[in-house]
Design a protein around this nucleic acid. Structure first.
Lengths: 338, 338
DNA sequence: TTGTAGGCGTTATCAC
DNA sequence: GTGATAACGCCTACAA
C-alpha cells in the first residue's frame, strides 16, 4: 500500500493525499474525509525510506553504547532508557549500536550511509577518535561526557572532578585523615576514560587542599572486583578509614568484603560516592552519594541533539551537572584510634 | 556525495560505480581502481534510504523492549546486548524501541512505515495483541517467549514450566516438604506474562506429583521487593524450608531478609531457581540454578529472524531451551524438625 | 567492458 | 481546491 494506491481509491491525486497528511496546503473537508477513510482502512503510513530520500533526513538518531561484552552499569542503563523514552516523545527512532573505539563497520554504515540525522555517544574518552570522525562527516552529535577540548562540541556530563572533591572535603571535615578513591577499572583509565581521570584529578586536588592522605585503587565494574578491591584496601592500608567511590557496579562487593572483615559501616568505615540513586539506596546502609541524574541526562542529550540537528550552524551548547550530595547513612566521624 | 558525483570524478557512468561496489558484473581492474580511489577519498557509502527504497528492504530490524519505566532485569539486558551483537555480525542495524502492550505510536511507525524488515519482541504475553498486529501487517517477527497458540509463529523461549518442575523435584528429593515459589510481580502475572504463568503451572504440577505442599508468592523485580517478600514468607509460612525463584532481580533482597532473620543458606533455608548465570554466581552462597542462556537466545532470535526475512513463506521454527540445573551451594537436605 | 534509462514512494513546485 | 510532474540516490535490465 502506497500513496498512489490511496490516491486512486480515494479518487484524488497523490499530491492531494500528501497534503491531506501534512496539512501543508488546504484540502476540502469532504476530500480529506474520503482520504482519511481509505488510509485507515489500509493502515497506510508513508514509506520511511522514500520519505527520508526525498526529505534528506531520516528522523532517526544513533545511540552508540559501550561494547556489550562489558556489562552496562545501572547508570548507563538508566541513561539508555531515558534516551529511548525522550526520543520516542519526539517521534524519533533510535538505532542502537555497540561501539568501542571505532567499531568501524557499524559506525561507518550509520554515519556515511546517512542512516541517522544525528548521534549520541556514550563512554567518551578525553581524546576520542569518534569525535573528529563525526565532525569530518558533518554529522551532528552530542556526547555523554566531554573530551579534553570540549569547546566546539555539544555534550552533557556530570562534574566528577568537583563531586569527588566535595566528597573528600566532607570526609575530611569529619576527621578522616586517610582516604581511598575507588575508581573504575585500570583498562578504562588507561584508555583515557574521562570520568575516571577527572575523578582522579578531583581527588588529588582535594586531598592536598584538605591536607589528608589519599590512595587510589582501580576496580572493575562488577561485584567480585569490588569485593577484591575492598579486601586489598583493608589489608594494605589499615589506616584508611573512609573511601570515595565512583564505581557503583562494585558496591555490593564492598559491602561483602567489609562484612567479612567484621567492619561495620559507618562505624568502622565510611563510604561515600557518586552513583545512581537506585544503588545508593539499596546499599546497606544507604549510601551517602551524589546521585547521578542519568535519566535527566538522557532527556537533555536528546533535546540538545534535536536542537543541533535542526540548526547545524548553532553554537555548541553543553550541560555540566553537579547534583547535590544526598546525606544518607554510610558516613560518620572518623573512629578514634587506640 | 552521491554515486553520481563519484562516477563523474572517476570518469565513468553511475552504473559502473554501482557494479564496482556490488561486484554483480565484471569491471576492469583499472576502472575499479580509479573508482575505489575516489570512493576512499570521499568516504563514500551508498545512501541507506535510497538503497532501501530501491531494494524494498532496510537491512534494519526492530527490537521491542519492555517499557523503560520498568527496570530491565539482568537477563533481559544480556538478551538485548546479544541481539545487538548478533545483528552487527550480520550487518543489520537495530532500531530499539520501548513497547508496552501496543505503544501505538512508535510501533505503528516502525511497522506500517516499513522502517524495518523484521521485528524481535520481548516480554511476550500468553495472548499478545502485537502478534496478530504483526501478522496482519505481514511483518516477519520472532518472539522471546511464546504465546498460548505458538504454532504459527517463530520464537525462542526457555522452558520455565519444565525447569521449575525440576527444581521442585530436586527439593522434594532432598526431603523438603513445604516449598515456596517466588514468582514475578502481581501486575506481570495479571497481565498474562508467559514465563510467570508457566512457572506457576510447572510448580503446581510438580508439587502434586511430588506430594509436597506449595505456596506461591508474587514479587516485584527489585531488591526491596525481594526483601519484603522473603520476610513475608518466613513470617506467614515458617514451615517452608525452601524456595524456587524465577525472579533474579530480587535475589539480593532474599539474601538480606534471610540474613536479618538469622537464617543461613542452605543450612536453614534452601534456595534454587532460574536465573542469569551472573546473579546466580554472585549470590551468597552461589545459587543452584538453571542458568538462562540469554546471550545464546539473542543470537538465535536474530538468526531465526534473518531466516524468516529471507524466506517469508518458510514454515515457522522455534527453539525451546531447557538448560541444565547447575548445582552450586544454596541447596541442602531439609533441616530436621525438633 | 561500459553506458542509458526507468522506477522504487515521497514531497513540493508549478500550473490550472 | 486540486492535479501533473520533477527530483531525491540507488540499482539493474537492456543496449551497445
Amino acid at each position: 500500500m502506497n500513496i498512489g494506491e490511496i490516491a486512486r481509491r480515494a479518487g484524488v491525486s497523490r499530491s492531494t493525499v500528501s497534503y491531506a497528511l501534512s496539512g501543508k496546503r488546504p484540502v476540502s473537508p469532504e476530500t480529506r474525509a474520503r482520504i482519511q477513510q481509505v488510509i485507515e482502512e489500509f493502515d497506510y503510513r508513508p514509506n520511511a525510506a522514500a520519505r527520508a530520500l526525498k526529505e534528506g533526513r531520516t528522523r532517526t538518531i544513533g545511540l552508540f553504547i559501550p561494547p556489550p561484552a562489558r556489562r552496562l552499569t545501572y547508570m548507563q542503563l538508566e541513561f539508555v532508557a531515558s534516551v529511548l523514552e525522550a526520543a520516542a516523545q519526539e517521534d524519533l527512532d533510535v538505532l542502537v549500536s555497540p561501539s568501542g573505539d571505532l567499531q568501524e563497520h557499524t559506525f561507518n554504515r550509520l554515519i556515511d550511509g546517512r542512516r541517522v540525522d544525528g548521534v549520541i555517544l556514550m563512554e567518551i574518552k578525553l581524546s576520542d577518535p569518534r569525535v573528529p570522525r563525526l565532525q569530518k562527516a558533518n554529522m551532528p552529535f552530542v556526547t555523554i561526557g566531554h573530551t579534553a577540548q570540549p569547546d566546539g562540541t555539544w555534550w552533557v556530563d556530570v562534574d566528577y572532578q568537583g563531586l569527588v572533591g566535595r566528597c573528600v572535603q566532607h570526609l575530611a571535615d569529619l576527621g578522616h585523615r586517610e582516604i581511598a578513591l575507588i575508581n573504575r577499572s585500570t583498562e578504562l583509565l588507561a584508555g583515557g576514560y574521562g570520568p575516571g581521570l577527572r575523578a582522579r584529578e578531583g581527588f588529588g586536588d582535594a586531598v592536598s587542599r584538605c591536607g589528608v592522605t589519599g590512595v587510589e585503587y582501580p576496580c572493575g565494574d562488577d561485584v567480585r572486583s569490588g569485593d577484591a578491591c575492598m579486601e586489598r584496601i583493608l589489608q594494605e592500608r589499615p589506616e584508611v578509614s573512609a573511601a570515595v567511590t565512583v564505581n557503583e557496579a562494585a558496591l555490593p562487593g564492598f559491602q561483602r568484603a567489609l562484612h567479612r572483615a567484621g567492619l561495620s559501616v559507618p562505624r568502622d568505615f565510611s563510604l561515600i560516592g557518586v552513583a545512581a540513586q537506585y544503588w545508593a539506596e539499596e546499599f546497606h546502609p544507604p549510601l551517602t552519594s551524589a546521585d547521578v541524574p542519568a535519566a535527566q541526562m538522557g532527556a537533555e542529550a536528546v533535546s540538545l541533539l534535536s536542537e543541533h540537528i535542526a540548526d547545524p550552524a548553532a553554537p555548541p551548547r553543553h550541560l555540566l551537572l553537579s547534583p547535590p550530595i544526598s546525606l544518607r547513612e554510610s558516613v560518620s566521624r572518623a573512629p578514634t584510634r587506640d
